[in-house]
């Protein structure tokens, strides 16, 4: 583990032990959680209301401005929350040098998946 080398000597001295980023992570996890309460409940209710419907009905619902905006907001909050949550899980259980790589991999995967999902919604919304 030579993660210290990523920080300058000044940054290490000024921090006095704390990286000063924990509260930001904690808060972001709560903010995304609060956003996800209405978004996920709306999503599940919308899917239930369209249970057994065909492709055309599903896509025409998804291409309405309300549904596409809701889905994009859902994907952003969902994958931000997922990245923050999985990072904590990794930090709790992975103690080897693989930890840093695993956290980076989680973040790249989450934000990559969010972008794929958002582009798919936009593709449906703007006449794919």
């Amino acid at each position: 583990m030579n993660r210290q080398s990523f920080r300058s000597p000044l940054a290490r001295a000024l921090g006095l032990g704390s990286a000063k980023r924990g509260s930001r992570h904690w808060l972001a996890e709560r903010v995304t959680a609060i956003a996800l309460v209405p978004l996920t409940v709306w999503f599940v209710a919308s899917i239930i209301a369209r249970a057994g419907s065909d492709y055309t009905a599903f896509v025409s619902w998804l291409s309405t401005p309300f549904a596409s905006v809701g889905m994009i907001l859902l994907l952003i909050a969902l994958f931000h929350h997922t990245a923050l949550g999985l990072q904590v899980v990794i930090e709790d259980y992975v103690h080897s040098g693989a930890r840093f790589a695993a956290v980076i991999a989680i973040q790249l995967c989450c934000y990559g998946l969010a972008v794929v999902g958002v582009i798919a919604i936009l593709h449906i919304a703007f006449g794919g």
Partner: peptide, 14 residues
């Protein structure tokens, strides 16, 4: 959530 993205992407694909 990965499944959700696959599902939406499949809908976008046709």
């Amino acid at each position: 959530a990965i499944g959700l993205v696959i599902w939406i992407s499949a809908a976008a694909a046709g």
